[in-house]
């Protein structure tokens, strides 16, 4: 669904992205990994259209600039790291912002808002002011908003997640990533996620791309990418592996 060819971003001569080519298919969770400053967030910004790059970025064989704004918003959404609101909205009003690119009747809109809030477990604090929610609750509200935004996509949509679990406790992290994985499996979402926790990469990603200094180092399954040698080379950390009873590998 998403194809990046030779994407380069070099403001003032500094190559933050250097000839990056990746492909993401519908139904997979695709991890972007790398140490700090590797270019992960810059790459996500390039895909979301926040920065203009050289090279080509195509979603369903159409370059991003050829998409109509509203159509693109219905097929590509970004779950931000942390969202502040300048003036207080209720949680439900924040979710309703996902209606912006859609044309729905009032009844349809209200039904969809309820559905997405239920899916992300936000219903019980729907009427509370957004600023009074915890970091984890806010993230779930934002996820409900983003899912509403993508609910009318004609083809499988692409969801971009920038460190989605940074403000969440352990249980919430796994709930959120589990839900995202389920959306990819059951509804064919393409998901690109920046994740710092390599165990989460091993558990939830189907494929991943290791970036360093703006360049692609390797693209493969997480188990192949995250070898001890690579972790030592790119994160300067000597990791150890523990194999659990169910065969799952955990890095420590």
């Amino acid at each position: 669904m998403l194809q990046l060819d030779n994407v380069t971003f070099a403001p003032q001569g500094k190559r933050l992205l250097d000839d990056v080519s990746i492909e993401v298919v519908a139904g997979e969770v695709y991890g972007l990994l790398g140490p700090n400053g590797a270019g992960k967030t810059t790459l996500l910004k390039a895909i979301s259209g926040d920065i203009k790059t050289q090279g080509s970025i195509r979603l369903y064989d159409k370059t991003l600039s050829d998409w109509n704004r509203r159509d693109l918003a219905q097929h590509l959404a970004v779950l931000p790291q942390a969202s502040q609101l300048a003036f207080p909205f209720s949680a439900r009003e924040v979710v309703a912002l996902g209606l912006t690119p859609l044309s729905l009747s009032r009844g349809q809109a209200s039904r969809l808002i309820d559905e997405k809030m239920q899916l992300t477990d936000c219903t019980r604090f729907a009427d509370r002011p957004y600023p009074s929610l915890s970091g984890g609750e806010r993230q779930r509200v934002q996820l409900a908003r983003v899912l509403l935004q993508l609910s009318q996509a004609g083809r499988a949509p692409l969801l971009l997640l920038d460190e989605p679990t940074s403000a969440q406790d352990l249980g919430q992290q796994h709930n959120l990533l589990g839900l995202v994985q389920q959306l990819a499996r059951d509804e064919g979402f393409g998901v690109i996620a920046i994740l710092h926790d390599l165990n989460q990469v091993l558990r939830y990603c189907d494929n991943c791309c290791l970036l360093d200094k703006g360049q692609v180092c390797v693209i493969d399954t997480p188990a192949e990418v995250l070898s001890d040698a690579r972790i030592q080379q790119h994160w300067q950390y000597e990791s150890q592996r523990v194999v659990l009873g169910n065969g799952q590998v955990v890095l420590v």
Partner: peptide, 20 residues
């Protein structure tokens, strides 16, 4: 009004919602 609501989230968030 809806676009102004979206901008309260931030300019890039509003852009991602399809607002020019």
């Amino acid at each position: 009004a809806q676009a102004l609501n979206a901008v309260l989230l931030g300019e890039s968030e509003a852009r991602h919602l399809g607002i020019n």
